[in-house]
Design a protein around this nucleic acid. Structure first.
Lengths: 260, 260
DNA sequence: ACCTGAACACCGTTCAAGT
DNA sequence: ACCTGAACACCGTTCAAGT
């Protein structure tokens, strides 16, 4: 609440400035909202305060407006969240480090895209669970690449480099599963308290499932390994593994009759 | 259900002897709630009506009680959801098809466990997103195997079959990522309307991102492939691939100096 | 010991009214 | 055209009071 009154409270609503001086040179009157501004503000608000804190009324206040005014630009809270997810995904499409015509091969394309999605997830860790779990518009548009645009681009990149239709679709499924699993775990790991038991003396504070750590000898013994954050290398290695698997799929779909 | 008092969630506080055995022959009066009954009812309610419909007041009514009465058994809605997640995960531990001592090898252990988690996800598709996204108690207890118990069991199975400590931890990370990505996508696919465009005549109804399907030629062309549900075989193949990858890790950790 | 009733602060959403 | 104010039904949560 403390910082909340800051941005919007210094009052465009106040009649204090003596209506007589309503000269048009004071364009302080706040440019009208539009959907994009509402969605952008929502993303910022979620990044800063967390998803649970996002409320129509609070987002309104954050924008210097009554919460009810938002209903002019989104049909409701659900639509607001859908819009947030869509915006965050489409922003990726405009990223020049991510989207170029796949002239350097499909592996380059998949690498760039994977890293772009990862950057997005890390930049908006509170938004990513939304990207992961909002019900998709259709069962074949899979998070986190939840748009027909990305799906089409993906299929284009792969089929134009020799993948059969079936292989391209299978690749899309494997690729989305990989991204979703890794990135959801990575963002959920951040924002978790650094945990007790970075060192050995931590059998106090029963970890909320009622049993002491002493009952789990392997966990205790490997605490130092478990506490390390290997997200980045883990991501690279799994991605590498996936690309190799896809390369095998490609070879098999090119030479369907080959032995073994 | 079998090992009811095991985890001790409500055990030690409640000496069952209850000194005064008061004459209660009319037990028609609704046996008093306890935490487990509340959580079980919550799971059922979510399965039936969806997560958003779960409300303290409505769950209370479902149990024949005012919503406020639930606060005697859970500290609040957050605690209720945590309890739901914990219960659903621990139920797995009692499943004889899942948990046996890993005497048939680590691959058997991982296979059984993976299929057990998948059955759970499919049985409770509305609960699984909660399992996936609730903030874990510690950063090294990763969804969907979100308990020290499972983590310890996992590490035990692998290290007792030749995995080095480092390899076992890396395996835990790869395995949880795999399960989370696949199963979250699988449950999110269910409950999505069967989508327009099962056949070719579907450029009506712009798919909510404002553009017609006609703009996405690959999607349109491959609609019949995309519409297929390959979850099961996809799961098996990815699991197989993961196990092979782990087997390579095992061989490398056994012979650390071997060439290539 | 366990549950109820009333109360409080806050939601999402609608809609007539303001400017 | 865009926003406000008041209103409605429903939340989560607290707590004194009932039984």
């Amino acid at each position: 609440m403390a910082e909340d009154t800051g941005p919007g409270a210094d009052g465009p609503t106040q009649p204090i400035c003596a209506g007589a001086v309503r000269a048009s040179l004071t364009r302080t009157v706040r440019t009208p909202l539009d959907r994009r501004r509402v969605l952008t503000a929502a993303i910022g608000y979620i990044d800063e305060h967390g998803l649970d804190a996002l409320t129509m009324r609070r987002l309104g206040a954050h924008l210097g407006v009554e919460g009810m005014a938002l209903y002019r630009h989104v049909t409701g809270r659900e639509d607001l969240l859908d819009g947030v997810v869509e915006l965050v995904i489409d922003a990726l499409y405009g990223d020049p480090d991510v989207y170029l015509t796949p002239e350097y091969g499909w592996q380059d394309y998949l690498q760039r895209l994977a890293h772009g999605v990862r950057r997005m997830a890390i930049a908006h860790p509170e938004v990513f669970p939304l990207v992961a779990t909002r019900p998709p518009a259709a069962p074949w548009v899979r998070p986190p690449l939840r748009s027909l645009r990305w799906l089409d681009s993906f299929l284009d990149a792969l089929t134009s480099h020799g993948f059969s239709d079936e292989a391209a679709v299978a690749a899309y499924r494997a690729y989305t599963s990989f991204l979703l699993g890794h990135l959801l775990l990575e963002v959920s790991q951040r924002g978790v308290p650094i945990s007790p038991l970075d060192d050995a003396d931590a059998d106090a504070s029963p970890p909320a499932d009622g049993r002491s750590l002493a009952e789990f000898p392997h966990v205790r013994r490997l605490a130092h390994l478990l506490a390390e954050d290997e997200s980045a290398t883990e991501f690279e290695e799994s991605l590498e593994n996936l690309l190799e698997r896809l390369a095998r799929m490609l070879r098999e779909s090119e030479r369907p009759g080959s032995p073994v």
